[in-house]
């Protein structure tokens, strides 16, 4: 494009100035524009910090896959290799690919500079999963004192997260319509279900008794329909109850981790 060609000779577009401007954009969260400046700068000069910042910018914009590609591309000899590797692992965490994170951590040697950090991440990841929690001593091992207290608190909550059994909810409603709903915490819906089923059942019985066969069968059918629907609904209600609690827990945990920066070192010196 002619405009861009004309723009190039200007002093403000010289690599050094591009870098300065890019850094300013990066530090004011204007990541997409920052990446553009950085990439233009890198055309003229190789720079590991800048390359690293591009990865971070993608990470901040939640473009996790691209960011991970950037961090995966660091050769072992590079000065930024440990940090890039750390971010590479963190990205599995951010992408919520917890088992992939744990596999990668298990493959990493203990002499890796940020081994405690990624080990912490892999333990925290258990708090998000539905898999069994590892022993709490493992958690204690990798966190410092203040971190230990906080994370163990979440560990305990997760361990005792109130959950309702879907089977029990369904069975209860099969025995007495609505009971499963009450068990799942929906008392009003449970009582309603009992009344609806009772009323329809009574109408079926009453009509048969009075010799109204058609109406008798009609109400029997409706009773069966709502009876089955209520069993299904009780199972669903128990699942919703569980999901609601799990989601609330995860949200709180996520906010906590964000505040603690995932127990990782942050790169404050990049924006001083």
């Amino acid at each position: 494009m002619p405009i861009v060609l004309l723009a190039q000779p200007a002093e403000l577009f010289q690599p050094g100035n591009r870098l300065k401007f890019g850094n300013y954009l990066f530090c004011s969260n204007d990541y997409l524009r920052a990446i553009d400046e950085f990439q233009n700068f890198l055309k003229y000069k190789k720079n590991d910090t800048v390359f690293f910042k591009i990865g971070l910018a993608y990470e901040k914009m939640r473009k996790y896959d691209i960011a991970q590609l950037y961090f995966a591309s660091y050769p072992e000899k590079n000065a930024f290799y440990p940090e890039a590797r750390l971010e590479f692992h963190k990205l599995f965490f951010l992408k919520k690919e917890f088992s992939a994170l744990r596999e990668n951590v298990a493959r990493t040697g203990k002499n890796f500079e940020y081994y405690p950090e990624i080990k912490r991440l892999s333990y925290i990841s258990y708090l998000f999963d539905d898999t069994d929690l590892p022993d709490s001593n493992n958690f204690k091992l990798w966190f410092n004192n203040s971190g230990q207290k906080k994370i163990i608190r979440y560990y305990r909550i997760k361990l005792n997260l109130p959950q309702k059994s879907l089977t029990v909810a369904g069975m209860l409603s099969a025995v007495i319509p609505g009971l499963g709903k009450i068990y799942a915490g929906e008392t009003g819906d449970g009582i309603t279900a009992l009344i609806v089923n009772g009323l329809l059942g009574f109408l079926a019985y009453d009509n048969f008794r009075a010799g109204h066969k058609f109406r008798g069968w009609l109400f029997s059918g409706l009773t069966a329909f709502f009876y089955a629907g209520n069993i299904y609904g009780s199972v669903a209600a128990a699942q919703i109850y569980n999901n609601k609690i799990k989601t609330g827990y995860k949200q709180e945990l996520e906010m906590f981790l964000e505040r603690e920066n995932y127990f990782l070192p942050d790169y404050k010196n990049l924006c001083k």
């Binding site: 819906d189 279900a193 609806v196 329909f225 629907g229 209520n230 609904g233 669903a236």
Partner: peptide
């Protein structure tokens, strides 16, 4: 249908 029956009751 089951979901509808449940919703109707609710």
């Amino acid at each position: 249908l089951l979901m509808f029956a449940d919703r109707f009751t609710r």
